[in-house]
């Protein structure tokens, strides 16, 4: 009987779309995000299907057919993007190179993401001594020049895909830690965290189910930014001869190998350079877009 009186007759009006619908609407309306995601997806598919798509073996040399021009510069369809200084099919090397770039970007971002998120969330949630230690570690890390340290490590251990991934993964966690720490600090003051604690929820539960979902949007954005960062660093290291070792096809390495002939055959440098630029641009657009569409809609 009391219920009848309590009930709010106008409650039928549950207003507005739910967060998922809002998200869907924002995603479909965001050109930059759609472009970024599209390009990254296409490159991802190309990388996965490389053995099927590549017209030639990327390692097969043909010294009789060196530096054939691409088709749009008077070459033949046999080698649509021409061949390099060892007569290897440039398109095939480019396609296989996408594997290296995306693999390094993804795995390095994942490794540093796990390290940085764990540190940042722990610092923000527990505060006190944990926070002091993490903040100190972040400062130490920020004081190290990434490129120089990576160069030194690779010079000592020798360049290989695994070493490059490992070095980048262990170096790029600073931004994760900083941002996750700040986001956690913000979210942990919310009353729903106190409510979960008062319910008796364990600390891992509070972190995983109350805090993480509310900082995940920031995490996704940083993952994309660090992916782009890692891809560029790999290219730089490979260019300097300290990254992926020849004959593995890597875009950075291709630029490096083409630079000697740059004045005569500029396309040797331009083609891998442009592809690298497009990938990094697409990932950054994706990150920016994700930041826009996942911005908190709750307090409108």
């Amino acid at each position: 009987m009391a219920l009848q009186r309590i009930a709010d007759p106008l409650l039928e009006e549950i207003t507005g779309p739910n967060p998922r619908q809002i998200l869907r609407k924002r995603v479909t309306g965001h050109a930059g995000l759609l472009f970024g995601v599209g390009v990254v997806l296409v490159l991802l598919i190309i990388a996965i299907l490389a053995p099927v798509l590549a017209p030639h073996d990327p390692y097969a040399q043909n010294l009789a057919n060196r530096m054939v021009k691409p088709v749009f510069m008077g070459g033949t369809w046999e080698h649509p993007l021409g061949t390099d200084h060892l007569g290897r099919d440039y398109l095939s090397r480019l396609i296989y190179g996408a594997r290296v770039s995306l693999l390094i970007g993804t795995v390095a971002a994942l490794i540093s993401g796990v390290i940085g998120t764990a540190m940042g969330v722990a610092a923000g949630y527990f505060g006190g001594k944990v926070d002091a230690v993490v903040t100190f570690l972040i400062n130490v890390r920020l004081a190290m020049p990434v490129v120089l340290v990576a160069l030194a490590v690779v010079a000592i251990l020798g360049g290989s895909l695994q070493v490059v991934i490992g070095v980048l993964g262990l170096l790029l966690w600073d931004r994760f830690a900083v941002v996750m720490r700040a986001s956690t600090l913000q979210v942990r003051r919310r009353e729903y965290v106190a409510a979960a604690q008062a319910i008796g929820a364990s600390t891992p539960r509070v972190i995983l189910s109350e805090i993480m979902p509310n900082i995940a949007n920031n995490l996704i954005v940083i993952v994309t930014l660090e992916m782009a960062h890692a891809i560029l660093l790999e290219a730089a290291l490979s260019f300097l001869g300290l990254g992926v070792q020849p004959p593995t096809p890597s875009w950075g390495l291709m630029v490096s190998e083409g630079k000697n002939m740059m004045l005569f055959e500029p396309w040797l440098v331009l083609i891998p350079g442009i592809v690298l630029f497009i990938l990094v641009l697409a990932i950054n657009l994706m990150g920016d877009g994700l930041r826009d569409v996942t911005a908190p809609e709750n307090r409108s």
């Binding site: 967060p19 919310r190 009353e191 106190a194 979960a196 539960r205 109350e210 509310n214 908190p296």
Partner: peptide, 27 residues
Amino acid sequence: QPIFQDPYSSLNPRKTIADIVSLPLRV
């Protein structure tokens, strides 16, 4: 059990009402 001041901050925005109300039972 508590009831807090700010209903805008005391409910996790990423969870449905069913999730929020059933959390104590699940815990």
